[in-house]
């Protein structure tokens, strides 16, 4: 009784906090000042036509670094908690048999899904997409692979090498921006900005997107792999 009352009180308090936000919201017809600045100067500043990507990668690049750090921390904690020692592991555990449709479809679809992920990742500065989206799609390709063959083993060495290399490269590009250019951390004026709308344009942004996508994709795949492998514990 007492606990139920507390729950109702907390939920009501949350509703009271959120309600003014809802009430004062008019679905504005005008952008905020910051949004207006990004819309007007985004292309001349970064050379990218996708403004969301230019905010994520360049204007708020430091926030993205923090985000990647949090994701890395979460993945490390998961692998620390769910690691299976050699003695407890069941090799080739019996799993429910996979239907013909799923196994055939996964052979055909996994390469296509990873290809779509790579396309979204590389074109992140032109069309909707970027490092996070591409990485998430690559990870869902890994998920389909695991569903078709639960005993599949990820090669952890390759994953860790890709992950740490792209993480270091991401930070290195940022630091080069501080040391050599006047643009500050993660400045994309490292290379020529080029013509907006071409694949090789927007300075360092495609490169940053690729490293970001590789890092997020391998990290999420690694988390999935750990969850699948933890099923093998006796």
């Amino acid at each position: 009784m007492d606990k139920k009352f507390m729950v109702a009180l907390l939920v009501a308090a949350m509703a009271v906090i959120l309600f003014p936000l809802f009430q004062s919201f008019e679905g504005g017809t005008q952008l905020s000042e910051l949004g207006q600045y990004y819309t007007q100067n985004g292309v001349s500043d970064t050379g990218a036509t996708n403004l969301v990507a230019s905010v994520v990668v360049t204007y708020r690049g430091l926030d993205t670094l923090g985000e990647v750090t949090i994701l890395f921390l979460a993945a490390s904690i998961i692998s620390f908690f769910l690691s299976v020692s050699k003695d407890d592991r069941i090799e080739n555990r019996t799993v429910m048999s996979v239907t013909e449709i799923l196994s055939t479809a996964s052979q055909t679809l996994v390469p296509i899904i990873v290809l779509v992920g790579a396309y979204i990742l590389v074109n992140g500065h032109l069309t909707p997409g970027g490092g996070f989206q591409g990485g998430a799609i690559i990870a869902s390709g890994t998920l389909l692979m695991f569903l078709a063959n639960p005993n599949h083993k990820l090669n952890h060495t390759i994953i860790h090498v890709i992950e740490s290399t792209s993480g270091i490269a991401f930070v290195a590009i940022g630091v080069i921006g501080v040391l050599m250019m006047d643009g500050g951390f993660l400045s994309n004026k490292l290379f020529d900005l080029g013509t907006p709308g071409e694949v090789i344009s927007a300075g360092a942004m495609p490169l940053i997107n690729i490293f970001l996508g590789l890092k997020v994709g391998t990290e999420l795949s690694n988390v999935l792999g750990i969850f699948v492998e933890s099923q093998n514990e006796k």
């Binding site: 969301v52 970027g130 996070f132 989206q133 998430a136 799609i137």
Partner: peptide
């Protein structure tokens, strides 16, 4: 951009991780 991320993470990966936990 957000829709793309949410479609692959919110509906596919999160659900799968919950099911792996349940199976374990």
């Amino acid at each position: 951009d957000v829709a793309m991320t949410e479609a692959s993470i919110g509906s596919a990966l999160t659900t799968a991780i919950f099911f792996f936990t349940l199976n374990k």
